[in-house]
């Protein structure tokens, strides 16, 4: 692993974020909304997490 080129660190980071992006959707919507109205789609924090993960993927792609 130590012999891998530095660029692999970026690929591993991006892999971690993609894996996390998948895990986020395992959490049930009801557990996230916790009593908030289900019609307010913006309150679904899984979508917030996707925005964050998208930003991180862009960052590690740019600075690779």
């Amino acid at each position: 692993m130590i012999d891998l080129p530095v660029a692999w660190a970026n690929y591993i980071s991006m892999g971690i974020f993609i894996f996390l992006g998948g895990l986020v959707w395992i959490v049930p919507k009801k557990a996230i909304l916790a009593g908030q109205p289900e019609t307010d789609r913006w309150r679904d924090l899984r979508i917030w997490a996707m925005v964050l993960i998208g930003l991180q993927l862009t960052i590690y792609w740019i600075f690779s």
Binding site: V24, L45, I53, Q56, F63
Partner: peptide, 25 residues
């Protein structure tokens, strides 16, 4: 250079997402 920013990115964001969805509730 920009490597210092890892403390704010890979060194924070995954843990913050997990904290938000699992531990804080």
């Amino acid at each position: 250079g920009i490597a210092q920013a890892n403390f704010e990115w890979i060194g924070a964001i995954p843990a913050m997402i997990i904290a938000s969805l699992i531990f804080i509730p």
